[in-house]
Structure formats: C-alpha cells, structure tokens
C-alpha cells in the first residue's frame, strides 16, 4: 500500500538525454520522504511523473499497486513550485479554492488566508499568499499523497515555517503520504522521516 516509482526512465522528446534513469522509490501512507538534489537532477520532472502529469518512458509509477488514473481525480496531488503559474489569472481566489471542493474555514485560518483575499485576483496577491492558496487547494482535494515541489523555496523564513507547520499537521492528521522535493538539506531534515539523496545515492539515479 504505497506510492511507488519502479525503475523509472524519462526524457523529454524521443532523442533527448535521459533526465531520469533507474529511479525507484516508495512512500507509504503516513510517511514523509524528502527528495534531495541540486539543480538539474530532474527533481521537478520526478515530481511531475509521481503526480501523473507526465508518463515515464520506461518503468512504472504505481499507486497501491495500480498505475495512476489517467482521467478523473488523481489521489496524488502536486503543489507547484511557482504558485502564480498554478492559478488561473482570470479567477478570483475564492473560485481557485473551490476547484478542489468546498474550502475548510479552519484550514484557511491556519494558513493565514484572510477572508478578504477570496475576492481578489491572483495578481493582487504576493507569491507567498498565493502559495498558501495552492496548499489549501491541494489539501482540500482529499488527496492521499501530497507532492511538494520546492513549495517554499521563494518564501521568507517566517512564511516557510508557517506553511510547513500547517502542511505537516494536516498530513499527519489525515495519514497522508508526502514527498517533498527540495535542494535544502536542513529543510529536508526538519520535515521528512527519510531522505533520498539523488546526488549521493547513485542507485536511484543514473547520472553520477
């Protein structure tokens, strides 16, 4: 009962260099894994594969032993690195939240989302404020697994701490599995039970 990557290969296009080779990992529900690597190691690509945005060229991504659903709701939800690209600029923030179901007032409060912001357009909010909405949207969808792709990289320390506190609380409360992709070793140590280092662990990655 886990989200697994089994010997995954991936490249962009048919002739490009391999971005991911021999990647295998597994996360149980209730477990928190951090994937650690410097820039250019295919961290974001791996996050896209795990959340079903792209298909691996070889190998499989399995959820509870079955491939991820291609249509309909995907129980693995990705929080993108750049929140401003992950919300429709023509929607008010209230509608953005409702896309994943009715927003939970307590969760919004915990994330520090003020009710007045729901009436705003994305360009009227800062990156940190938008990222709170993206976290609320992902948590509100009822997903079983959460993939966090560098979700706090561009935020200041206080905002980072506040967002991660809520994410970790919700994840443990609901028994969700979490994969956090980051290049920050200290952050990885703070938020995860287990760290997969793509740089030091050549078994999980072909490029050494």
């Amino acid at each position: 009962m886990a989200l697994e990557a089994r010997n995954v290969f991936f490249r962009y296009g048919k002739r490009g260099p391999w971005v991911l080779e021999h990647v295998s990992l597994s996360v149980e529900r209730g477990e928190r894994l951090a994937i650690l690597a410097p820039s250019g190691y295919g961290k974001t690509t791996l996050a896209l594969l795990l959340a079903g945005y792209r298909q691996p060229d070889r190998g499989q991504i399995l959820l509870e032993g079955k491939p991820l659903p291609k249509k309909g709701f995907c129980p693995v939800q990705l929080i993108w690195q750049h929140p401003e690209e992950a919300v429709n600029p023509r929607w008010r923030m209230g509608k953005v939240l409702e896309e994943s179901g009715k927003p939970d007032g307590k969760l919004l409060q915990a994330l520090g989302i003020e009710p007045a912001w729901l009436e705003r357009f994305p360009r009227e909010l800062s990156g940190g404020e938008l990222q709170r909405f993206c976290v609320a949207r992902a948590l509100g969808s009822g997903a079983d697994y959460l993939i966090c792709d560098e979700i706090s990289t561009m935020l200041d320390g206080i905002t980072q701490a506040q967002i991660w506190k809520v994410v970790l609380e919700e994840v443990s409360q609901r028994g969700m599995g979490m994969i956090a992709v980051t290049h920050n070793r200290h952050l990885a140590g703070r938020i995860a039970d287990r760290i997969l280092d793509m740089e030091r662990d050549p078994e999980s990655h072909g490029r050494t």
Partner: peptide, 26 residues
Amino acid sequence: ACHYVALSRRLGKSGGWILIHHLLPH
C-alpha cells in the same frame, strides 16, 4: 500548456468543464 489547466485535469475536471471555466474566460 498552462500549469493550472494541467492541474485542473488532475483534480478530475472534465474537458468540457475546463473549456467552459478555464479556456472560454480567456
């Protein structure tokens, strides 16, 4: 190619829903 359209699909929204709510307003 927009992230929020791909995300909408992953949230289980149908092609028609995406057309009406994401594409047409643009």
